[in-house]
Design a protein around this nucleic acid. Structure first.
Length: 478
RNA sequence: GCUCCCUUCGUCUAUCGGUUAGGACGCGAGAUUUUCAUUCUUGAAAGAGGGGUUCGAUUCCCCUAGGGAGCGCCA
């Protein structure tokens, strides 16, 4: 889509319904909108589609805003409440009524349901054709509150020229008359979305394909009001690894779930944007590059499966390339959200934070998520005598303990407690005794960290410090 | 059932009719290495099926199969 199609900068929006958290598919839609607007000096607006009062939920709104903030997708101005604009929507409904483009329908929900059932039984399309479309309003019952329906065209076809889906043609006979105002007087989503997009000056509507059929029906509202129809881009859905619609079963739908799993926002954005969009063979793309390169016309039509392995790989890359300080900040921020995190959080003071920062260079090389980073830092959090896992115990046999005893003596004599000095010490010990370096390093690792796997032992010695290191080694000797 | 959409390695994708069908994740092998990881080298792996159009189809058209979305006084 070329920016000069509309003479000014684009105005796009993300319009979630407050029925739950920010879904990962919604997050990608928001990302696409954000990239498009920010990359072209346009506006990215946020609107909460809360016309259904029974489903409105303040916690859900908060969760959605929280998710967007975490993903670092900032929007322009305040989030707009669709419900708050109800008067405006009703005014438009009245105008459509006055123009003969809409009518009152007195059918009850049960009548409609029965008609649908019958249509289904007879193998006909399950669309409801209201008898009130052509009936004389004078016949209207006085004891029933009607809904307002759009008087949609019955002949011809409605064409949606979509930037992703292409030219999609819907026969009008398959489109029924949308309810635009409920019997309780509240406008429905289908009316509100059109009025709001129009009033907000939205130039490109980028949303999920599940809205495609609605678009055809909504187009008739634009036509009825003689409004300019915006450009559309309906992006495909994201499926779970098994190809089915992403659901609770797949473990993670909400962006907050991904935060809790230790993913970085920049990694999730990079992963998400590549689901459906690409720029040649580029895989790791900085946000700056994305802003420059992203284009709606480059989005593919087919649905994509979510691949956690690839996300993990990208996350590992971004962790390795993050600054030590940023990682420690994110790691600490994550603690309240994870199991057992508060216990660790209580141990974080300035000294611990400094240790973490110093340990980061060697730790971030070996972590794919912040969770792994936290797990890898356990040796810093544990107090003596430290717990050892099975593999560590196995390493610490009699020979290993003898080696540790010798090392303890040597380390005590070391004047400069640095990783290089200690490494020299260990290397000379292994040369003198003829023991392989691994035979010396593993017992050390087990004694210092309680595990068979850790960052390089000399870095561990360094970060732990002389006193703590010697004490942990001594714990294994006696 | 009706309408619409989709279909290249297991997964995400590149290819704007002519390529040994490329890259990435994952997987296999090897190198580096104090563990793990990183890094590097390397291997296996794809055009759903059938018809057309064309000198030539992964690419354009049609059919079939499979998958998805929609068909609410939800959004």
């Amino acid at each position: 889509m070329t920016a000069d199609k509309t003479t000014s900068a684009p105005i796009v929006r993300f319009a979630p319904s407050p029925t739950g958290y920010l879904h990962i598919g919604g997050a990608r839609t928001a990302l696409f909108n954000w990239l498009y607007a920010r990359g072209r000096g346009g506006k990215f607006l946020l609107r909460i589609e809360d016309t259904d009062r029974e489903r409105n939920n303040e916690a859900a709104v908060a969760a959605i805003l929280d998710g967007l903030k975490w993903l670092e997708l900032d929007w322009d101005g305040e989030a707009v409440s669709q419900f708050a604009r109800g008067d405006r929507h009703r005014a438009i409904a009245d105008e459509l009524l006055a123009r003969g483009a809409a009518y009152h329908c007195y059918c009850s929900p049960s009548e409609i349901e029965a008609a649908r059932e019958q249509a289904k039984a007879e193998g006909r399309p399950q669309i409801f054709l209201s008898p009130w479309r052509d009936r004389d309003p004078k016949d209207a019952p006085t004891d029933i509150k009607p809904v307002v329906r759009l008087k949609a065209a019955r002949d011809g076809e409605t064409i949606v020229n979509d930037h992703v889906q292409g030219r999609v043609v819907f026969p009008n006979k398959d489109l029924d008359d949308l309810i635009i105002v409920r019997s309780d007087g509240n406008p429905t989503y289908n009316l509100a979305v059109v009025v709001d997009d129009h009033d907000m000056g939205i130039t490109q509507v980028v949303r999920g394909v599940d809205h495609l059929t609605n678009t055809a029906r909504q187009t008739q509202i634009y036509l009825g009001m003689h409004w300019t129809v915006p450009e559309f881009a309906h992006v495909p859905l994201i499926h779970g690894p098994d190809g089915a619609k992403l659901s609770k079963r797949h473990g993670a739908q909400a962006v907050q779930d991904y935060r809790a799993m230790g993913y970085l926002p920049v990694a999730l954005r990079n992963y998400l944007v590549r689901l459906g969009w690409s720029h040649g063979d580029d895989e790791i793309i900085s946000t700056e590059q994305l802003l420059e390169w992203f284009d709606i016309d480059g989005i593919g039509k087919s649905a994509a499966r979510f691949d956690f392995k690839k996300l993990e790989d990208l996350n590992g890359h971004y962790i390795r390339h993050s600054s030590d300080d940023e990682l420690v900040t994110r790691l600490i921020d994550l603690l309240p959200e994870i199991e057992g995190g508060t216990t660790i959080d209580a141990k974080i003071d300035a000294a611990m934070r400094a240790k973490l920062v110093r340990a980061m260079p060697s730790m971030k090389e070996r972590a794919k998520t912040l969770l792994e980073l936290i797990d890898g830092a356990q040796f810093l959090f544990s107090a003596r005598p430290i717990a050892r896992d099975e593999k560590a115990e196995k390493i610490l046999d009699a020979d290993a303990r003898a080696t540790l005893k010798a090392l303890h003596t040597r380390f005590t004599a070391v004047t400069e407690w640095t990783s290089t000095a200690l490494e020299d010490e260990v290397r000379s010990y292994s040369e003198e005794t003829g023991a392989k370096l691994g035979k010396v390093a593993q017992p050390l690792r087990a004694a210092l960290t309680g595990r068979a796997v850790s960052p390089p032992v000399f870095d561990v010695l360094d970060v732990l410090g002389r006193e703590e290191s010697l004490a942990r080694i001594a714990d294994c000797v006696t």
